[in-house]
């Protein structure tokens, strides 16, 4: 360590250098990016089974009252905001977490039953369950003997 232990400033200089160093080795695209500034936020994972479509998004720091989820026909909209006020008088060594408003609209492959859509936010992860409309659910056709 290059700093002397009694110097209060250099301890935090060291921290600052170390944090900077952590990012030097990163390849393109992996550096600190403001998540909310990217065109597609939030990132989505969507999967399905016979009954429903499921959409999941990581939204840390977004409270339920700042989040709106709409499902109309075959379109899902996730809209919200994450606000963190800059603290006056504090010195930021790192500011990677994005803030602001976001809207994401995705077209789903099938119509969903908008009345039965459910959304849950837990530990900063949003899960939307979108039951498929009755007319698109796989239906077993009874084969009649001739």
């Amino acid at each position: 360590m290059a700093y002397t232990r009694m110097n209060p400033v250099s301890v935090f200089d060291e921290l600052r250098r170390e944090i900077g160093r952590l990012f030097d080795g990163y390849g393109p695209g992996l550096g600190p990016v403001s998540a909310l500034s990217t065109a597609r936020f939030p990132a989505l994972n969507i999967w399905e089974d016979g009954e429903a479509l499921y959409a999941e998004a990581e939204l840390p720091g977004v409270s339920p009252q700042d989040l709106e989820v709409y499902a109309v026909g075959n379109e899902l909209t996730i809209k919200g905001r994450r606000g963190t006020a800059l603290e006056e008088g504090a010195c930021y060594h790192r500011r990677e977490r994005g803030t602001g408003e976001f809207t994401r609209v995705v077209t789903l492959p099938v119509e969903v039953d908008a009345e039965k859509v459910e959304a849950a936010l837990k530990n900063g992860v949003l899960t939307v369950t979108l039951p498929k409309a009755d007319e698109v659910k796989p239906r077993k056709i009874a084969v009649q003997a001739g």
Partner: peptide
């Protein structure tokens, strides 16, 4: 994880 670090 993305972080903010601030010094008070």
């Amino acid at each position: 994880p993305q972080v903010d670090i601030l010094e008070r």
